[in-house]
């Protein structure tokens, strides 16, 4: 049994706060929650948190025979699991709609956008390729699960290194254990970051929102009657959203996925404003992730003399 939708007082409180340009947790409209990463002992094991949302991502690779129609390409599969542990909204057993939607989006962000060079996963054409399995476990869902899952997935792919292999003769493959040869990082073309916006109808009296310092914290091109766009919706913001906009961008200002299915109609200007904000955030996330992954690699290095 699903918990009931937000109560009328909750809704009223949320929307009257929004009319005064306030969010429930005191953030600006275009401010995201704090994010953090922690790496496990294994390569490719990452736990990511975005506010109170937490996601565990685990990448592992095993050798398999490639598909006959694509003998030069490795395989990639993404598995998502939303257990009742994450939120009371999820039920055990059958795949829920949220789970299917999350898996589809991650599939589009990381697989369809060619993030991973599949041909680099080939060991012996037609005989042996790597099969990358990315497992996503939601540990806690307080809104923005997709953003957190995609960040965890990106971090895990950057953190993961596969064992070095050597092909001897015609079809003999030697796998070198990590202790003897440094494992090899994945060949990634780019790293997409998913950024979510929640949209709400404009305030009934636009002057109220404009008076309360809406200047700095609004999307460029947002006029008084334009809908309000919130970056990184959490909890109640997520459940009361009148429209959601998911953008996946690479730090090179390339859009990998744009997903706005229905919900509140947006003017093209507002949409482009959101894209610009997302592009900036993707660059920030890239810089941050780069530093964190490098730190962990330096920490893991064992020198043999």
């Amino acid at each position: 049994m699903r918990p009931p939708s937000p109560s009328i007082p909750e809704k009223d409180f949320f929307f009257s706060a929004l009319d005064q340009a306030l969010r429930l947790d005191g953030r600006d409209f275009l401010e995201a929650r704090p994010h953090s990463l922690s790496f496990g002992a294994e390569l490719g094991h990452v736990e990511c948190s975005l506010g109170k949302t937490r996601v565990l991502a685990q990448v592992d690779a095993k050798m398999v025979r490639p598909e006959p129609q694509r003998p030069f390409e490795g395989l990639i599969s993404i598995h998502c699991e939303l257990s009742p542990m994450a939120s009371t909204e999820y039920e055990p057993g059958r795949q829920s709609d949220e789970e299917i939607a999350l898996a589809r989006m991650l599939d589009k962000i990381f697989r369809r956008s060619d993030t991973i060079d599949r041909e680099a996963l080939c060991i012996l054409a037609g005989e042996r390729v790597w099969h990358l399995r990315i497992a996503i476990h939601a540990l806690a869902d307080a809104g923005g699960l997709l953003d957190c899952a995609s960040l965890a997935c990106a971090a895990a792919l950057r953190h993961f290194r596969r064992p070095d292999v050597e092909v001897v003769g015609a079809n003999e493959v030697i796998v070198h254990p990590p202790a003897l040869r440094a494992p090899v990082p994945l060949a990634l073309h780019h790293t997409p970051y998913c950024i979510t916006f929640a949209c709400y109808r404009a305030a009934p009296e636009p002057s109220a929102a404009a008076a309360k310092g809406a200047g700095a914290g609004t999307v460029a091109g947002q006029t008084e009657t334009a809908p309000r766009v919130l970056l990184d919706p959490a909890g109640l913001e997520h459940r009361l959203a009148q429209g959601m906009l998911h953008l996946a961008l690479t730090p090179q200002r390339e859009l990998a996925v744009v997903h706005k299915a229905g919900g509140l109609p947006l003017a093209p200007g507002v949409l482009m404003g959101a894209v610009q904000v997302a592009a900036r955030r993707a660059r920030e996330l890239e810089a941050w992730l780069d530093v964190r992954v490098r730190e962990d690699w330096v920490r893991k290095k064992v020198e043999v003399r």
Binding site: E254, L255, V258
Partner: peptide
């Protein structure tokens, strides 16, 4: 002139978009 659906699944630069 508002947009109800925007759906893209392939990579494209922001300016081209």
């Amino acid at each position: 002139g508002h947009l109800t659906l925007v759906s893209m699944e392939t990579r494209l630069h922001v300016d081209r978009f």
